[in-house]
Design a protein around this nucleic acid. Structure first.
Lengths: 195, 195
DNA sequence: TCATTCGCACAACAACTGTTATGACTAACC
DNA sequence: GGTTAGTCATAACAGTTGTTGTGCGAATGA
């Protein structure tokens, strides 16, 4: 009982990472407790010990994935001159790790669209992301770097552009190598620049 | 045996439409032969009679969905002055019907990402769509309506923008009503215009 | 050292999956 | 009108699913 709470959370994190690996390889259609347990080198008994239900396991895995992604995103200070560009670049699957995250995320759209609760969570996430972008856009406008216009609309447009680029890059990594993704994003940003 | 082939295909089409309805409501996670049969007002015996396997049923349903979508898309002549705009508008979920199609399409990304064969099919579809857009872009450039630049890159950018807008609109129909979707697209096209 | 709690493997459960086999009913043909 | 081929409901199949219980070993605390 003196066991620290850290062990408990560490096991839940390990299980979540196993979920990521299964989702990355087989999607939600192949996400079974047994598959996760095998990936973890354990049995379903471990999973049910740490999570009351499969839904909770998946929810925790996705929450953790979002946390990790957000943590990586804030690696650059917000007052950087190219903060908007960096924020958008962080969404793209430019590394293998980011590609995995994006694949899981895109896959989760299927169960999310079918479940009102999950759908709402996704909607909230994207709304928050757009709010962040909107602030960056407004700041850039004040610095005279960006064209005029409703910052919320520009943020929604930029979010659209990056999201769609993620999808295309996931399905056609050959046609959309990191270099081209960055080039396309920069071309898009150039059209928004006031220079 | 004198029975016309039309009846056969008609039954397969009805089954496919039942698949659409199930996918629209419950996604791929809820897509079972029994659910489709119930939606069809029949039993699984009918489905197995017309399709050797579930995979074939789903493939046929998605093929038919693509056909129907493409058929609707070509409603405007290609030499129209705003052909590019129309082509992009046709992707957006501006009607309930288009929203259903898009929901199914986005949901299909989960199984597609996990299956190399399906993934390849999706890649090919998007590549073809981009080729069409590229030709429209090149034509518009020759007419002096669009900025200079590699038509393929501009097409990829436009495809990205529209795809991402679809995703956001599906999750937040309130925040992205048809009017705003069109406005955002027009704002994007305005940045590409040479005027 | 003994008692107790925790961690988790193991096995079993009922529910559900895609698929198959069987046969009743109907329509078409000679 | 008897035969045949197509249509599909019914029922059963083996396999897989999430979940639940049982129990054993190890770590913990008295």
């Amino acid at each position: 009982m003196t066991r620290t709470k850290g062990d408990h959370e560490a096991r839940r994190r390990d299980a979540s990472e196993a979920v990521w690996r299964v989702l990355d390889a087989h999607g939600f259609g192949g996400l079974t407790l047994r598959a996760v347990a095998a990936e973890l080198g354990a049995t379903t008994g471990l999973l049910t010990h740490y999570f009351p239900t499969k839904r909770d396991l998946v929810a925790h895995a996705l929450d953790l994935l979002e946390q990790r992604t957000n943590g990586r995103t804030r690696r650059v200070a917000d007052d950087d001159r190219s903060a908007l560009r960096v924020a958008l670049l962080d969404v793209l699957p430019l590394t293998a790790e980011a590609a995995t995250s994006n694949r899981i995320w895109v896959s989760s759209w299927d169960p999310a669209l079918a479940d009102p609760g999950l759908s709402h969570d996704h909607a909230r996430r994207y709304a928050r992301s757009r709010d962040t972008l909107r602030d960056l856009v407004a700041a850039a406008q004040q610095r005279g770097e960006l064209v005029a216009g409703d910052p919320a609309d520009i943020a929604a447009g930029a979010q659209s552009f990056v999201l769609g680029l993620v999808v295309q890059a996931l399905f056609e990594p050959r046609a959309f190598p990191p270099r081209r993704q960055v080039a396309l994003l920069d071309a898009y940003l150039a059209t928004l620049s006031s220079a």
